[in-house]
Computed example of a mutant assay.
Amino acid sequence: MKVVLAGTVIAEAEQDDLIRIEGNWYFPPASVAEGVLVESPTPYTCPWKGECQYFSVQAGGELHKDLAWSYPHPYPSAFDRVGKDFSGYVAFDARVQISE
């Protein structure tokens, strides 16, 4: 699957390597293009996944605020709920194009 924003490929991975959580595809960290994610100070803590890290996305010569997020250190109980360790996997906002 491929993530594209403003004509820039942000991430690309086989669907078998992705994790689906609450309707969002989470991409392995190694599948995300280098230099496109910029850490954001936007705070959020999910009640069951834990502390979230938001990212702005650098694409098409612009910085698109808070269009990606990750859980660097999810709560251990979240692994049981999801069925896999999704630490550091990256999900993208619906405004980013995700295709097969």
Rank of each mutant, 00 (worst) to 15 (best):
S77G: 15
A91T: 10
K84V: 02
L5P: 04
A30T: 03
Y89L: 01
A78Y: 06
V9Y: 01
Y26C: 06
F27M: 01
A33R: 14
P47W: 09
P47V: 10
S31N: 01
A78M: 13
P74R: 14
V32Q: 06
P74H: 12
K84G: 00
Y26R: 01
Q53E: 14
A13I: 04
T45V: 12
G88C: 12
A78S: 15
G50D: 15
G7P: 07
P41M: 00
A6K: 11
E62C: 05
G50R: 14
H64Q: 07
L37E: 08
Y26T: 03
E51W: 06
V9H: 11
P76W: 01
Y44M: 11
V32I: 11
F79T: 15
G35E: 05
V3C: 07
C52R: 10
S99C: 05
E22Q: 13
P28K: 07
I19W: 04
Q15D: 06
P28G: 03
A59L: 03
D80T: 15
V38C: 03
S56N: 06
M1G: 07
S70W: 15
V36Y: 02
G88E: 10
A30C: 08
Q53C: 13
K2A: 05
R20Q: 06
V36R: 13
A11T: 13
S87R: 10
L37Q: 04
C46P: 10
V38K: 11
G61A: 00
Y54Q: 04
Y26K: 09
A68N: 06
M1N: 02
P47Y: 15
A6M: 09
W48K: 13
D16R: 08
V57Y: 11
I98D: 09
K84A: 13
V36C: 14
V36M: 12
R95G: 14
K84R: 08
G50S: 11
T42D: 03
A33P: 12
G83D: 01
A6C: 09
R20S: 02
W25G: 09
L5E: 05
P76E: 14
Q58G: 10
E34T: 11
